[in-house]
Amino acid sequence: MNALILTGSPKGRDSSSFLLGSRLGEALRNHGVTVRDEFAHQALRTEEGTRRLLDAVDASDLLVLAFPLYVDSLPAPLTRLLELAAERRTASASPGGPLLAVLVQCGFPEAHQCDTAVGICRLFAGRMGMRWAGALAMGMGGQLGGGFRKLPGGGRNILEAIDRTGESLATGGDVPGEAMALFSRPLVPRWLYTLFGNLGWRVQMRKNKARRPLAYRPYAK
């Protein structure tokens, strides 16, 4: 089996999406799957990169989209890639397609805020003739910045969810329901996440030596 893990974050290899995707890649490799990593934002900057990426999508038996939630949906370049892939599939009318799975995380505490983005990916799979394998969706994605080790409990639930998913996908199965539940389990209480989140923005501002107040309104009349 050939798997393509497509990271849909502008931060590429430095992103939380790649952190999650590369762990899934490791789990898939452990079960004999050949894994290739690609990055949507970088590839779409050139015609050659776009063509190479679309070829990679067509050549894969398993496509994994790993991305951050942007405004209740997929980041625009990843949306563009889905449009291009769908145009190409219609044009070539190639039957069937790979299995599609999703890894998505959002900066809000609630994993269900990713539902519309997951729905978009599911419909894309249907239009492409792909088999929808399911999605791992999590909230509190802001905590992934320090890697798995810095997560409460070492990110045990997340790692277990990804490993179980890798095992299932490697044999053509779906994302297991237990893995979805584990992955979406809150890392810390909601109040604690929002408290530290709110403090974190101010810390970042100080680090960046921002000269405007946080609540500045540049477009107010």
Partner: peptide, 25 residues
Amino acid sequence: VTFGGYSSQLKKLLDRFIPVLDPRF
């Protein structure tokens, strides 16, 4: 309607809309 969502043209702009919000929760 693009797989139930927006076109990438519109989405590119909406992704750039976040400065109209205050980051605090």
